Amino acid sequence: MSSSSSRMMWELDQEEEKLFKQSEGMFNHQVAKNEREEDEERRRRDDEKDAFGAMGLIPQQKITAALRILAYGTSVDQVDEITRMGKSTILESLMRFCGAIKSIYTAEYLRKPTNMDLERFLKKVEMRGFPRMIGNIDCMHWTWKNYPSVWQGAYGDTKGAKNIILEAVASFDTWIWHAFFGVPGAQNDINVLTQFPMFNDVLQGKAPKVTYEVNGRMYDGPYYLADDIYPRWSTIIKTVPCLRSAKEKHFASCQEGCRKDVERCFGILQASWAIVRDAARLFDVESLRSIMVTKMNHPDNHANANVNLVENVENDHGTLWKYVKKLERVENGR
């Protein structure tokens, strides 16, 4: 007998010794647990059978198809060759997956900052030279390929491309805590800002209570960094247009450097999710909004993290099973 075979037999003997050395109650508990898992698996497979007794699609197939479309930007026909699913089933699985992610993670990620979050923001931005600044505002255009022909005038920009606009507020750690998506691409940043619901809290007095001093004058309320196209509001700090003194050059350099946080966040979204980097293929604005919210709510919103997630899901049954269980709880309303 070879050394590897002897080693294997020794390990089996050790496992048997551990099994029969345990108490009778523990042994019966393990037996009952295994029987429950087998019964649950048997019932699940019976429920997935159709009228002819054939097995239906398992949840792992549907989630894999949705993740491949989001992370790789592949078409439905390409996913069909891998998951062996129909086009309508793939699209339905994609929308249900996005709805489940929105239900699970929106309250945790796409929300207003708490007092603890504000303390973390203010501590960091004060080190960067902008005390009491809580975010950066900017817009991102997502090209829309399969737009309705009757809407081409509203969604076309000056270059003739059809876009949908996302306006978001991002912090220094690329956390998007407020977003507004769905504005036609023919509008500019000022038109989008007038529809942006975030400043309603400022008008209603519900904005975070912070104070800061600039040039000996006290200001009440937070502010945001933006580029030159935005209006001159007290809550928006822009750069200096005409630089003359060394102080103005230094301020413009610091403001433009901190303002790149939101652009860096958009770059991470496009690098992590190929579906945003390419033109959108769906026909419905609500479906595109659901996809965009899914990407912003993902807990691993870092460069290349979501592509690795798909590889882990396809290779690791445990990672995929956690997604399946969460989706089932959302579907059952629990």
Rank of each mutant, 00 (worst) to 15 (best):
S5G: 02
M8Y: 10
M8F: 08
M9D: 06
M9H: 05
W10V: 07
W10I: 05
E11C: 00
Q14Y: 00
Q14C: 07
Q14N: 05
E17C: 04
K18D: 05
L19M: 11
E24K: 12
M26L: 08
H29M: 12
Q30Y: 13
E37Y: 07
A54L: 15
Q61L: 04
T64S: 15
R68Q: 12
L70D: 05
S75M: 07
S93W: 02
M95I: 07
M95T: 01
R96A: 09
A100I: 05
I101G: 00
I101M: 14
T114D: 02
E119V: 04
E119F: 01
M127C: 01
F130W: 04
F130H: 05
G135L: 01
N136S: 13
M140G: 01
H141M: 08
W142E: 02
W144Q: 01
K145L: 15
S149Q: 11
V150R: 12
Q152K: 15
D157G: 10
G160Y: 07
K162L: 09
N163H: 14
N163D: 02
I165S: 04
L166V: 03
E167F: 02
E167W: 01
F172Y: 15
F172C: 00
T174W: 06
A179K: 03
F181A: 07
G182K: 05
A186G: 13
Q187H: 15
D189P: 01
D189W: 06
P197Y: 00
L203P: 01
Q204R: 13
V210M: 04
V210D: 01
T211N: 10
R217D: 03
R217A: 09
M218V: 14
D220A: 06
D220I: 07
P222Y: 07
L225A: 06
L225Y: 08
D227N: 09
P231F: 06
S234P: 04
T235F: 15
C242Q: 12
S245M: 02
K249T: 01
F251H: 00
C258D: 13
K260D: 07
V262H: 05
G267P: 10
I268H: 01
A271T: 11
V276H: 13
L282K: 07
F283I: 11
E286A: 12
I291K: 08
V293E: 12
N301H: 14
N301S: 13
N301Y: 14
A303Q: 10
A303Y: 05
A305P: 00
N308P: 00
L309N: 02
L309S: 02
E311L: 14
E311F: 08
K325F: 02
E328I: 04
E331Y: 10
E331C: 03
E331W: 09
E331L: 03
